[in-house]
Nucleic acid binder design. Sequence first.
DNA 1: GTAGGGTTAG
Length: 411
Amino acid sequence: MVEIKQIHARLYKTGLIGDPNAVSRLLASSISPDFGSLTYARKVFDEISRPNTFMWNTMIRGYSKSNEPEAALLLYHQMLCHSAPHNAYTFPFLLKACSTLSALEETQQIHAHIIKTGFGLDVYATNSLLHVYAISGCIKSAHLLFERLLERDIDALNLFCEMLIAGVKPDNVALVISLSACAHLGALDQGRWIHAYIAKNGIKIDRILGCVLIDMYGKCGDMEEALEVFTKLEKRGTSEWTTIINGFAIHGQGEEALDLFVQMNKAGIKPNLITFTAILTACSHAGLVDDGKSMFKSMTTVYRLNPTIEHYGCMVDLLGRAGLLMEAKDLIEKMPLKPNAAIWGALLNACWIRGHLELGKQIGKILLEIDPGHGGRYIHLARIHAAAGEWDQAVEVRSQMKQRSFKTSRV
DNA sequence: GTAGGGTTAG
């Protein structure tokens, strides 16, 4: 930082401060997180009367990687006001900021600018767009979130089609993002189409592409094709086995999932924490309580894996669905981790399904305390009160929700 | 001209 200030001072002395090349270099080193300072870079930048595109981009890049990425968007706005021209570098930096901010609206506007300014064929810009659409979607209610999630996946798929129509060759990353969009949407036809595209163009199926193909077929419910892809893979490691096991798990085919787990062990592939999430999920739909319990136990005794909060969540779900509510509650109270809203939520759900209204009310109260911004919890508790004939309590919970929902804001 | 984006299984 000291060096940068010295260089800055020397630029003044020598009159080089008017040289765009020298100032550009100064800016580029100032935004370096190791030895620069963004605040200082901004001071230098603000002194420049007519910054060129490189300078604007450098500042946007600096902010996009900083802890105030929103400043990158503000700067872009200024850039537009100054009618400073874009180039191909502007958009990836800007979209990086959008992705950390989950700024979907801004992304859509930038998308329009990309098309308007003629960068719609730039692979960097379009892949950055695909990425933001694939990950953004933070909004206050789960319902809206779900809609947004679908929306971004649809956007990602449309963008993929546009890429093909425009003659832009998608690389593996674009294929991965588009296939995961298909997986989220359950869009089997589109997924099959992309798979065919991969085959037709002789694109090598690397490990990530392999996993996402299996996952796409798995999520879409075509387990036959998922198995086909799985068996044809050159190498099958932990993630490939986990993906196929999870496919069977989410469709309630617990026996098949467990069978694959045995085969996985025989093949000498070590399961990890994610494998066990899939295994415990498999036991929970399929009602395999004893298998689930012994699998959960084997995590520590056989595989030396420490169960995470998710694994406890799976167990609570498993026990709860089987009607073993007190055992589930016991597990929560004795677990070495701090129970979170998801864990209590799983138990509350089980109370509701099994009609244990008293316990449900207790859990519901705990949940409202630790997760007051979650509308679904209120509705759950209100329904339990209503089912118990306590209409006034149900009304009370609903009005609490109404009051508090005004306070909850966008995350 | 200088600089760059994106990755899988829960």
